[in-house]
Computed example of a mutant assay.
Amino acid sequence: MKNIRLNSRTATLVAVGGMIAATSVFGATSASATVTVSTNCNWTGGLYLRYNSDFKGAEADICNDLFDYAGWSVYNGSSLDTAHLVFAAGDGGSAGAGTSVKNNAAAVANWSATAGVSYTVYFHSGYSGAAQSIPWTHDGYPVNLNSSLKNNNASQRAFA
């Protein structure tokens, strides 16, 4: 498993570039990587997701909008490179570590470094369906996701 920072396009390109390089070296037609999403937002803040309610369990720290918590795929010529996002053990514990982020978060905290930025968590990938707004607080106060979104969450978007 790889740890990467999701707070910049550069990190995404590095992860995808690594998959592309592996594909080129081994001559495969596709590459797949599991990406643990943990403590990636230390410098910029972001939305911190936890596997269990009450902000317990494994964590996934996502710094920007994310169209699909499952991960992403990128075509490299005729091959498809895919990254799958999973929870990582952290200070909330290891319960849920290695589990897909998509449809498995139960609690969140908004630790945006920019005052006034709120995040919205969505039921569906692509920012649609039932939603819950997570307002900015100076201390990143954690909240449990509502019953529509607990373990049924697929994307997030930031709003100023």
Rank of each mutant, 00 (worst) to 15 (best):
G17D: 00
P142Y: 05
G129M: 10
R9I: 09
S53I: 10
L49R: 06
K150V: 15
T44S: 14
H84W: 05
Q156M: 12
V37Q: 06
S133A: 14
S79A: 06
A160D: 14
D139G: 05
S118Y: 12
H138P: 14
T82C: 01
T44C: 11
K150N: 15
A89R: 08
F67D: 13
S38V: 11
S128G: 15
A70R: 10
N40V: 02
S38H: 08
A83L: 04
S118L: 03
V108T: 13
N144T: 08
L80Y: 03
A31Y: 00
S147K: 05
S53N: 13
I134V: 14
N42W: 00
V86D: 03
P135H: 13
H84F: 09
L49H: 10
A154F: 09
D139I: 03
V74Q: 06
V121N: 07
T23Y: 00
T44Q: 09
Y51W: 14
N104Y: 07
V108R: 04
D68V: 03
A88F: 05
G46C: 01
T36W: 02
A33V: 09
N110E: 10
M1S: 15
T12A: 07
A11T: 02
G27I: 00
V121R: 01
S133W: 08
A113H: 11
A11P: 00
S100V: 09
F26V: 02
Y122W: 14
N146K: 10
Y141M: 08
N153G: 11
G18Q: 01
L149D: 14
T39A: 12
A11V: 00
R9P: 11
A107R: 07
G57Q: 04
I20D: 00
A107S: 15
S133I: 15
D65T: 03
S125M: 04
F55I: 01
T137P: 02
G129E: 12
N40W: 03
N3L: 09
N40M: 07
W43E: 09
F87R: 10
T39Y: 08
G98V: 10
N151R: 13
N76A: 12
S79C: 01
Y122V: 11
G17A: 02
S125H: 05
V16W: 03
G96T: 05
R9T: 14
F159Q: 12
V25F: 00
I62G: 01
A95K: 12
S128Y: 07
A22C: 00
A154R: 13
Y122M: 13
G126N: 06
Y141C: 07
V117P: 02
S125N: 10
